[in-house]
Design a protein around this nucleic acid. Structure first.
Length: 422
RNA sequence: GCGGGUGUAGCUCAGUUGGUUAGAGCGUCAGGUUGUGGCCCUGAAGGCCAAGAGUUCGAAUCUCUUUACUCGCCCCA
């Protein structure tokens, strides 16, 4: 047994796996760029108050899942548990809104939450997210959602569901909240203990309680979508119209509420099979009051986050192969005196010419080296034995065809380039 | 924070009602006559059976504790 293990809830991305991560991140970056989003990179930790004041004191994340620590100077810092508040902190701090009427940014960030690890749930995980500040039109919401769905479809996931809801704004939500509390209070006896606490502190969260008793008790509770103010109602209708226009299928889920208090109006989630209990691969929503809460002039904004680890689990569960490979084009087989030196020099030339080349200085037999070349899926094996080294002519074997040709050292790079382009 | 499951070679797992030198497949390494991968064959290396305590003549196997991992509740990505 290894003496040291990665801490609970963390994972190593091994060399054989990292190409998947890079590919997915690349697809995300390309799509973001095509939509006018630029990357923002914020610190791994922030002042604790950024999260406690803006995510909601009663949320699980703030109340019990944050990695908070004291600096030597006595300040309280917290490893970021989500990406939106830090991005908006940066937006406000650098007054990004002054340059253009809207600000579009994306991030690939590792987030930290002290939770019990489980399938698809880690203490450190990666989110691919983006934020759009400055636009309040429902078309923006539809566009943001379409970026998320286009992204996961590009990866090959067709089997997903998009759930949407509107959770109102500061005008209509208090009224809805009152109506919900009134309704639920009559059924308080059949609610679970957590929901009885929520009834007092965060009633909307009762809606997505999984307890059967609570579900039944609240099955006929007033739905927030029926209690929206005219503005929110129009916005929600505009969103659905926009999604229809884009041909994006969605289902309205009146019980969809999100885990942070800053959300307003649009809330959405993308769920997929193959993830067990953690079936949300991504989610997001509008947060029109967050920026004002950070001391800036009010700005409407919307964003989403997608869990990279969950995405990979989903791809695996669905049997989707990504177009990635670690295979070299050329495997240099070096055997005999003078061969390692020749291999070293030739590989350098090949690499400068843009050929992905692997060297083998193990000194094993040609047979053994060929075996490795085959296993790595090399397109060509360049064999440097005694005679090749002496005559300065490599034997180049096409691994698929099984054919072999003699190529003078100075012509090797060009030969490989010509061959591999076809 | 609360439940359930599982820890045997690098990986996936067998190990019969407790019985002597701990097994397979895959992988690794080396061979199957001159210097050539995939298929096949042979051989080798590699395990304090998670850790500790207990029961027993005897424990990988039974009991307890610890620990790690894992799945679910909760929450979220």
């Amino acid at each position: 047994m290894p003496e040291y293990k990665a801490p609970r809830g963390t994972m190593d991305v091994l060399p054989s796996e990292s190409c998947k991560w890079q590919y997915i991140e690349g697809v995300f970056r390309d799509i973001c760029a095509s939509c006018g989003f630029s990357e923002i990179r914020t610190p791994t930790f922030e002042h604790t108050e950024l999260f406690t004041r803006n995510l909601g004191e009663t949320t699980d994340v703030v109340s019990k899942e944050m990695y908070t620590f004291q600096t030597a100077g006595g300040r309280s810092l917290t490893l970021r548990p989500e990406g939106t508040a830090p991005s908006m902190r940066a937006f406000v701090e650098h007054n990004l809104g002054s340059a253009l009427p809207f600000t579009k940014m994306y991030y690939i960030a590792r987030l930290f939450r002290y939770e019990r690890p489980q399938a698809g749930r880690y203490r450190e995980h990666t989110q691919l997210g983006l934020e759009c500040v400055g636009e309040e039109a429902p078309q923006t919401d539809a566009e943001i959602i379409s970026i998320a769905t286009r992204f996961i479809e590009t990866l090959g996931i067709k089997d997903y569901r998009l759930k949407i809801n509107s959770i109102g704004c500061r005008v209509c939500r208090p009224e809805y909240r009152k109506a919900l509390v009134e309704y639920a209070s009559q059924k308080a006896d059949s609610l679970c203990s957590v929901c009885r606490w929520r009834l007092e502190n965060n009633p909307l969260r009762m809606l997505d309680c999984k307890e059967e008793g609570c579900r039944q008790a609240l099955a006929d509770a007033p739905a927030i979508s029926d209690c929206l103010c005219p503005e929110c109602r129009a916005h929600f209708e505009g969103l659905k119209e926009g999604l229809d226009l884009l041909g994006i299928k969605y289902e309205q889920d009146k019980n969809l509420v999100r885990g942070f208090d800053y959300y307003t109006k649009t809330a959405f989630e993308i769920v997929s099979s193959g993830l067990g209990a953690q079936n949300a691969v991504g989610g997001g929503g509008r947060y029109d009051d967050l920026i004002a809460g950070l001391g800036h002039k009010p700005e409407p904004a919307i964003g989403f986050g997608i869990g990279l680890e969950r995405l990979i689990l989903t791809l695996e569960a669905l049997g989707i192969e990504l177009p990635v490979s670690n295979s070299p084009e050329v495997y240099m087989v070096a055997c005999g005196s003078g061969a390692p030196e020749a291999s070293l020099a030739l590989a350098s030339e090949l690499r400068k010419a843009g050929v992905r080349t692997e060297t083998d200085f193990t000194g094993r037999s040609i047979k053994a080296q060929m075996k490795t070349a085959g296993k790595l899926g090399a397109r060509f094996a360049v064999i440097l034995g005694e005679s090749e080294t002496a005559s300065k002519t490599a034997s180049v074997k096409d691994m698929d065809a099984g054919t072999q040709e003699a190529v003078a050292f100075p012509l090797l790079a060009e030969y490989i380039k010509n061959k591999s382009e076809r």
